[in-house]
């Protein structure tokens, strides 16, 4: 009884599938058009791989006090350590091989940045979605809270939080999440407000789907593009903020040196000519943040429909 209806649609054929590039592939090819993006992504992936592989490619575990020898302190780049290996980037005041310490520090910096970014993203976007969907007074209260949060300097808020909570990786992550959730909430709320007015949401309402389902299955997936962009940029921001806190001595403890702690350790030797203790971790931090930001910039260009050709 239904076969004859296919005939009516015969003139109304879909464009052949070959011509329609899948969105992901189109996105990838646009992303790689820029050589800066290619270099930045390569650099970022290299940094991540080096950080992950640190225990296998470094001569020393800087957290293991048995492997650290104070006699090796403040050695210049290229000097030979007491244990026999060459310290290509020199050593710091406590005798830690800087090359090893930087890779181990990168692990901590990246882990803190990514963990706080992901947690803030989840919490912030749920709050933003809720605000946009609820509307009215609920939305006003949440968004004024966001404004309040964003009006404080991020470093100041984080400093206060760390001062209250104390030292430690978990506390740093809590402080960073508190600083960052508002960015995600504001971004998601903006795009959710746009999506909410589209007809497919009305259709979902008309089909009697539950509110939770409409928010999570219909609105949220369509807000992902700006969220990815803010996510990358905010992760870089979190890494920089963690380094700032550690540099100021309120972040991570001396026994688990992140890049910020390493820079702070070398600070006192700068004027005595032992530049490497601060400069090499600083360069590593710079490269990490710059490469994440460049990737984030490119993502923004590619994902922004207003800029697309």
């Amino acid at each position: 009884m239904t076969i004859e209806h296919t005939d009516t649609a015969a003139h109304d054929v879909a464009p052949p599938i070959a011509k329609v590039q899948s969105p992901l592939r189109r996105f990838a090819s646009e992303f790689f058009e820029s050589w800066i993006a290619r270099v930045a992504l390569f650099m970022l992936l290299t940094i991540i791989v080096l950080a992950l592989a640190a225990p296998w490619i470094t001569p020393q575990n800087p957290y293991d006090l048995a492997q650290v020898d104070v006699m090796d302190g403040r050695l210049a780049p290229g000097a030979e350590a007491f244990a026999g290996y060459t310290m290509w980037l020199g050593s710091d005041g406590a005798g830690r091989d800087l090359y090893s310490a930087i890779l181990y520090g990168l692990r901590i910096s990246l882990a803190v940045g990514v963990a706080s970014g992901v947690i803030a993203l989840v919490i912030g976007s749920l709050i933003g979605l809720f605000a946009a969907y609820a509307g009215g007074r609920t939305e006003t209260i949440i968004m004024r809270l966001v404004d309040l949060q964003l009006s404080f300097p991020a470093a100041l808020t984080a400093l206060i939080m760390v001062a209250i909570l104390g030292k430690g990786i978990d506390k740093i992550i809590i402080a960073l999440v508190l600083v960052q959730w508002a960015y995600y909430a504001r971004t998601v709320r903006g795009s959710a407000l746009v999506e909410r007015r589209k007809e497919y949401i009305e259709a979902a309402t008309c089909l009697g789907l539950s509110h939770g389902r409409i928010v999570m299955r219909h609105i949220m997936p369509n807000c992902l593009a700006p969220l990815i962009v803010v996510g990358t940029v905010q992760t870089a921001h979190a890494i920089a903020l963690e380094a700032t806190l550690s540099f100021l001595g309120v972040g991570l403890p001396q026994t688990e040196p992140s890049l910020g702690v390493l820079i702070a350790n070398g600070y006192e030797y700068m004027l005595s000519g032992r530049y490497w203790i601060s400069v090499f971790p600083g360069v590593a931090l710079l490269l990490t943040i710059v490469s994440i930001n460049l990737v984030g910039d490119r993502l923004r260009d590619v994902l922004n429909p207003r800029l697309s050709k």
Binding site: T2, H5, T6, T8, A9, D12, A14, P15, P23
Partner: peptide, 22 residues
């Protein structure tokens, strides 16, 4: 899909792969 004149083999596609009438 058959009732509405659509080819059921296309059901794994996304909306942007269809024409306005479809």
């Amino acid at each position: 899909m058959r009732r509405t004149g659509l080819d059921p083999t296309l059901k794994r596609r996304y909306p942007h792969q269809f024409s306005g009438g479809q």
